[in-house]
């Protein structure tokens, strides 16, 4: 019995009791989009560097979706799991008929739900307030979101598997998250990256995910190479996590 409804609901309640976590993964991305989109005039003007698009059309919202998913996957999820292991929460569950794997399933389910919620919030408010277009390839966008989330969550689970303590995983999460966000184009759009840097970015889960999100939001098919990079990360990190995960 790996899907345990009451466990998922209880873990969801616990998630909502962490205001900082809720803020960083749901409110911060959409707030950044709205506040910066409204207050910085350049953000909502057609930009020749982006092929005539406005920054708020695809680049900016794609980065906010990336920010939300990456923070959940690389920071919130591993920190929770390692804390649970360190404090013996997983060990205590292993004494009951429900396997501790159910807790992993609950955490992933909640993270996935929060990612979908945050993305929907970003798209809906962006559309209403900033006149951001609805992703023209909606199904493609959803598929990219799923694949990218699986890839990033696999990396997060692998972090949780190898980190010896909650302190280490929090540090390691940040040390991995910020460079990956940078390579994903968070502060310097990939179009403006010097080409060697962009090649590195192409092979990171965040670079491939960010670009594929941007492509599908702008109505373009994502590049197969980026999808392959995401699938590769999902596979490699996922298998490593499954092999190395310890319950106590």
């Amino acid at each position: 019995m790996l899907v345990h409804k009451k466990l998922i609901l209880t873990e969801a309640k616990l998630f909502l009791r962490e205001p900082a976590a809720v803020f960083f993964v749901t409110l911060l991305p959409v707030a950044l989009l709205l506040v910066l989109g409204l207050s910085i005039p350049g953000f909502s003007k057609a930009d020749p560097a982006l092929g005539g698009e406005r920054l708020v059309d695809a680049q900016f919202p794609a980065m906010m979706v990336l920010l939300s998913v990456a923070t959940l996957a690389l920071s919130a999820l591993p920190a929770t799991l390692v804390t649970y292991r360190e404090k013996g929460v997983l060990r205590r569950m292993s004494t009951t008929p429900v396997r501790p794997g159910a807790l992993l399933v609950a955490q992933i389910a909640i993270s996935a739900a929060v990612a979908v919620l945050s993305t929907t919030l970003t798209l809906a408010l962006g559309h209403l307030v900033l006149d951001m277009p609805v992703p023209r390839l909606l199904a493609g966008f959803a598929g990219v979101l799923l694949l990218g989330a699986v890839a990033l969550f696999s990396v997060g689970l692998w972090l949780a598997a190898v980190a010896p303590s909650a302190k280490v995983v929090q540090g390691a999460g940040a040390a991995v998250l910020f460079p990956l966000l940078f390579l994903g184009g968070m502060w310097l759009p990939r179009d403006l990256m010097p080409s060697p840097l962009r090649v590195v970015s192409d092979f990171t889960p965040t670079g491939a995910f960010g670009q594929a999100l941007r492509d599908t939001m702008g109505g373009h098919a994502p590049s197969l190479a980026h999808l392959a990079v995401l699938a590769g990360w999902a596979l490699v990190a996922g298998i490593a996590a499954a092999r190395m995960f310890r319950w106590q």
Partner: peptide
């Protein structure tokens, strides 16, 4: 065993906010 033996172990805790 899992259903009929209840066990309280050392160094086990619960989530802080539960």
């Amino acid at each position: 065993v899992k259903e009929q033996i209840g066990i309280q172990l050392q160094d086990c805790s619960l989530p802080d906010k539960l």
